[in-house]
Structure formats: C-alpha cells, structure tokens
Nucleic acid binder design. Structure first.
Lengths: 352, 352
DNA sequence: TTGAAAGCGGTACCAT
DNA sequence: ATGGTACCGCTTTCAA
C-alpha cells in the first residue's frame, strides 16, 4: 500500500532519488541508497507494476500460449518456463488455446492484442495462417517451442534424427517389419508427426526396407495408441515385429494393448518411443530421451535476448535427443526371421 | 498503439466522454456512444491495462497457485479456470509452487506481495502456517480448490463420502479383505489422503470389517501405485481381494502391477479409484467420478463474487462424486470366501 | 449529457 | 549526487 513517495519522505529524499536508489539506475551515493532501501524495507514497499509499466513500457510479464496443458510434453515445458521466469522476477500469463474452442479465437482476437506481456512463447501451437499473422504482427518478440513456421526463433529436438535413430535401433536388432504408429497429418501436432514419419521412412529406405514401411494411424495419446494397437496387433501373422511410436504416450498405449492381447513385449513385439516420459521407466520403455523442461528454459533465454535486442537475428535451436535402451526392444526372435544380426552392432546399440 | 485520446479526437468528443462510452459507466447519448465505438473500432483501439489498473485499482487478472502442473487433477482444474476466465475477459497469471523449491519460496516472499491480481485461486496447495498467513494477509480474496484450511472459501468433492462409497461398493460385492492404497500423512496432498483414508476406515467399521482394514502406503502417482502394488500383490495367500485407491492414478498403477504379476483384475483382485481419470476407460476402471474442470469453473465464480463483495461470507462447496461401475470390480470369487452376498444389493450397486 | 482537470504510482529528463 | 516536473494512459469527480 505504501508508495514510493512515502519511502522518499521517510528517507528524507525526493521521489526521483528514491526511484534511482531502488531501481539502481542513475547516480546515487552509497549512503542515501542504503537509507532509501531500509526505508522501503520498513514500509514493506513494493512497486506497483502497473505504474512501472505505464512509465517504462515494460510489463515484466511473459505470455505463454499452448494448445494443451494436460499432456506430458506441454506440462513439462510449462514448468521449465515457469521456473526460469521465477528466477528472473518475471510473471507468466497463460493462454490455453485449445484447437477449435471459442477460447482460442478469443485469445487470438482479443487477448494477444492487449499486449500484456513483453514477449510470447508459443508451444506446439500450430497456428493457421491468420493466427500466425496475428502473432507476428503484435510487434512483440515471439519464440516458439516445437514451432511449425520457419520465420520465428524456435527450439525443439531434431524430429527427423530422433525417428531415424529409433528406427535404426530396431533395424540393428534385426527387425524388418517395423511399423510407425502416430498421428495423421490432418490433426494437430501434425508437423511433428510428419517430420518423425519422414525420419522413420528415411531410415527404412536407407536400410533397404522401404517396402516394409507402414504407418499405423493413431491419435497422439495413451488411449489413442492403445486403441490403434488393439486393431493392428490381433493377427500374429500380419503384425509387425516392431513399432516406432511417434512419442512415448503412443508407445505406452501400444504396450498396454499388447499386454491385453497376450503379445509379449519385447519377445513378440519391440516398441520404441520418443520422449522419455515419466511412465517410461515403469513400462521399461526404450526411447529417445528429450527434456522438455530444458526446452522451456532455453525458450525463456532466447526470448529475453530478443526482448533486450529486438533486431537480433532469429535462431533455430535443436536439442539433442539420446537413445535410452530399456527392455521394450530386443533382437528379433529367430523364429520370426532368418535374418542374421551383426552382434557387435547390436551391442554397440545397447550400450549407448 | 492508439490511445483513448485519439479515439476521442476521431469521434469529436472529449477523453472523458470516450471513456464513458467505451466502459459503459456514466451517461452517454446513444448516438455519441455509437460514434465513439466505431472510432475505436477503426483505430483498433485496445485500452492499456496498466493505465486502467493504475486508475481503477483493478488488474483484471486472477492469480492461480498450484504445486503441480503435470498431474491430471491439477491440469484439469487449471483448464477449467482458464476457460472460465477467458469468457470473462480476465487474464490468468500462473504460479507453480512446487513444494520444497526455491520457486515456491520466491512466490510466497515476492510474487504474491506484488498483488498483480484481483484475487487468487489456490489449488491443492497445502501451505504451511507461514505461507498461509502470507496468503490471507494479502488482503485479496482467496478461493481454494481442495484447500486444507477451514477459513477460506473452498471447493472440492466430499472426500469422506467418496472413499466411503467406494469401500461400500466393494463390501456390497462381498469383499472383506479390502485394503486402502494411498499416500502417507507426511506427504503433500496429505489432507486429501487423510480424509479418504478416514472415509475408508469408517466404511470398513460400519461393515464390521474394522479388523480387515489396512493401509498400503504409496506415492500418489501411477508409478507410485505400481511400485507399492508390486510389493503387496506377490503373495496370493496374504494379498487383499480388493483395493480402494486414493485416486485413479494409484489405481491404474496397481492394475498395471497386477497384470505384470499375473493377478487377474477383477477376478483375482478388484480395484476401485476416485477421479474418473482420462485413462480410466482404457483400464475399465470402476471409480468415483469427479470433474475437476467444473471445480475450476466454480472456483472462478466464487472468487468473482468475493471480488465484487469482499465482505461476503466464506462458503464451502462440495461437488458430488458419482460411482461409475466399469470392469475392474466384481463380486468376490466364492473360492476366496464363503461370505454370501446379497444379490439385490449387488445389482443395485452395479446399475448406478 | 458533456468537458476540464486532477490524480493513480511510478520513471526519466533537465536543472542545479 | 539530488530535486523538480512532465508524462505514461486511463478513470472519475465536479462544473457547466
């Protein structure tokens, strides 16, 4: 409740001096600075952010737009962003822009225009063209995490690499009938799925297995992976011997489905995911680990540099994803195939 | 960028009139109001929130404090809050107060004191005494969702009822060795677990099964439920025939553990949860449904009335939880026990 | 019904 | 190094 005027009075200085002492801008003698600081402390003075914003133009707030809050990746990124902002004294204003909701259109119509933030982090947003235009026309720095445009600063893993590496792992284990399970290009999260699907296809082609490539369409959730896997794993003759899942949630759904159907993982079916989800350990899931929390922190760093230097060049940051071998993948059972697996290659793979 | 001064100029009126026309406060002729509105529209005028806040004291922002973002209940509540706020034109500032982190202490020390919100919603926060004092001494309305104090307005389900009803369901199915699986009172989320444990014990006592009551300690997550269940379900002689889980996440963990151990659900083991988690359907989980999203919406409603009428009496809102019978619970297999189950009671239970 | 002017609580420029 | 003062953009008395 106490304003800077009262602090100044108690310290016996003017408002301007008090302001300088408190913000650290401009000259102040060490002694007066101390006096002002202790006055502020005794009064429990906290600067009104609205007044600061009005005077300086800075809101000390970062906006975060994401389409989902309840999925592992998004929640983790959000936590990373939040932690990083807390350390820097910045507030986080959240905009939940679930696709196809009135809330989303309100956000793009009204909320963003209010510019109650110094910059924006958009996570896996996949905006349509109109939405994207709104975003950039704000005139505020924007950083995307898993963005779909190539004009903003973006941070993500290399999806192509991750899917490729996952597929190669299975190939090295002797698998040939390796299917990709993930979303359709029509859905949200489409770009990511598309890139991972491409990585998978590339790896299959490189291994001379192009004609074995197949795409099992699945909603990108645990129940989605479960439902799609149930449909496909029924027939022991036709089913693949290994699955590359577009992410761990789908992989876990597939494992649950396999167990229900009596298909043993990994002896009857190898499954590899991408994420290293919090449940991965529980399901002994082999996966390509990414750390979304780190991506959130990096996004904050990038955003802050863009806020400080608006003309700075846009950047593309690709975090490394690393293979974590657990027990959901194994060498192809010889009864399924006579392919000889190079054991040194397999060992090399297992020990990474 | 355009300010209200330019809108006023374009409409040929004064700033004051423009303000009245736009906010709808005070007298304005219909005609001028229209003129001002269209002027604002053509200029793409958006009021600066800092200026409004500075002049009125209202921030048009609601703060939300929660200890976790990545658990189902919290994410759902957050989505409910967000949707409701969006419809009302209010911003949501998020504070992730994970127990034991520096971020949490920063939030309580600095962030809350800045009062960048008109009111606060605290979800499952379980603040210690010092933290709680800070909360109420803000002088801003506070609404809790699943709160632990009895002095704030609070919304939640009736935990005692839910656990009681869950236990009664199993009793009606003929089970006697019914264990409760959930957290310890030392952990966070402690109050909820405590109340549910009490409800379970009450129901066991009412059924004359007090001496069969037992508490399997488990971290309140899927992997936690899994780990604890693995420890307990190994021995077919000693294990319970039914589990009341403190929430669906623990229940699901237990089901996954049971499947791993070859314990059939529900024929060897009945499991009931509380929540109706997004995975409940996939695991055919019988549960007491709550809808956290609704609790979020209700919390917003309550908070807004407190903001409008600060002296309004605090309230306690208890949402109903309803039994959803799926396939994780069934009548006790006669080979396990000779207890005769009243079949009408069982049917009544199954059809709810 | 409308306009003028005084704040709201800070910052920052310009003198001193 | 410090003080005076205009100003950020809007709301709200008060007078007309």
């Amino acid at each position: 409740m106490a304003g800077i005027a009262e602090v100044a009075r108690l310290a016996g200085v003017s408002k301007s001096t008090a302001s300088r002492a408190l913000t650290g801008s401009g000259y102040t003698s060490d002694e007066t600075r101390e006096r002002v600081r202790s006055a502020a402390a005794t009064l429990g003075y906290v600067a009104s952010n609205s007044a600061v914003t009005l005077a300086t133009g800075r809101t000390n707030t970062v906006g975060v737009v994401m389409p989902y809050l309840n999925r592992w990746f998004f929640a983790e990124v959000l936590e990373g962003i939040q932690q990083s902002l807390l350390e820097r004294g910045l507030d986080l204003t959240l905009y939940d822009a679930k696709p196809g909701t009135v809330g989303r259109s309100l956000i793009f119509q009204d909320y963003l225009a209010r510019k109650r933030f110094d910059g924006l982090i958009a996570v896996g947003l996949e905006p349509d063209d109109r939405e994207f235009d709104r975003l950039v026309q704000l005139g505020r720095p924007v950083v995307t995490v898993v963005g779909s445009a190539d004009t903003t600063t973006d941070v993500a893993i290399d999806d192509d690499f991750a899917a490729r590496r996952a597929t190669e792992h299975l190939v090295a284990l002797g698998h040939r009938r390796i299917a990709f399970i993930g979303g359709t290009p029509q859905q949200h999260w489409a770009h990511v799925d598309r890139r991972r699907l491409d990585g998978y296809r590339g790896a299959m082609a490189d291994a001379g297995l192009a004609e074995h490539a197949s795409h099992i369409i699945s909603e990108v959730t645990v129940p989605g992976g479960y439902a799609s896997a149930v449909d496909v794993l029924g027939d022991a003759r036709s089913r693949p011997t290994a699955l590359v899942a577009t992410c761990d949630e789908v992989a876990i759904g597939a494992i649950i489905a396999a167990r229900r159907l009596g298909v043993q993982v990994p002896s009857d079916l190898s499954v590899i995911g991408i994420d290293d989800h919090e449940f991965a350990e529980m399901f002994s899931l082999t996966t390509l680990r990414q750390v979304p929390r780190e991506q959130g922190r990096v996004a904050v760093d990038l955003l802050l540099t863009h806020i400080a230097e608006p003309d700075k060049a846009k950047a593309v940051v690709r975090m490394r994803s690393t293979l974590v071998v657990r027990n959901s993948t194994s060498a192809l059972d010889p009864q399924h195939s006579a392919v000889v697996v190079d054991s040194r290659q397999r060992q090399a793979d297992a020990s990474r």
